[in-house]
Amino acid sequence: MIQTNIVKVGMADLNVLAGSGILKTTGLGSCVGLTLYDRVKKISGMAHVMLPDSSIARDGVPNRAKFADTAVPELVARMEQLGASRERMEAKLAGGAQMFAFSGSAPETMRIGPRNVESCREALRRLSIPIVAEDTGGNYGRSIELDGDTGILVIRSANRGVKEI
């Protein structure tokens, strides 16, 4: 089979994959693309995190994929259901940019990218999952693809070409 199984992850969304295939999310600005990979079982997971903390949710039934503090445990649980082990998981982060530069003091919403990254790191630390690579910050958007066979994360940006971490 040459056709690759591509699983899309939308904004404020997460998904998991067992074995071959690609997890993909596009247009990361201040959002963070967080991936987890169990190298032994070849189980991968990806979340497109929009906001740092679920405590601000006003809609009662928060979408757990949307917030860093809830997306990480949710993603871990979904991968464990497929047979992954938390001890073997390694994390990669991409995104968390500040898309627009403003002179003067930036309002708090303009700093959402760095805060998202910080909150993802904290959530991973709480579960003792190591971050093996990251490409975060800056002022540009990114699209990412995680290869289910290798755990390699391919990062594309508009002006900075392609890189692998």
Partner: peptide, 20 residues
């Protein structure tokens, strides 16, 4: 402020307030 970048990355910046 101006950005030459991916439409998704740009517009997502404008909807953060809706996340809650």
């Amino acid at each position: 402020a101006i950005a030459l970048d991916m439409i998704g990355a740009v517009l997502s910046h404008g909807v953060m307030m809706y996340g809650a």
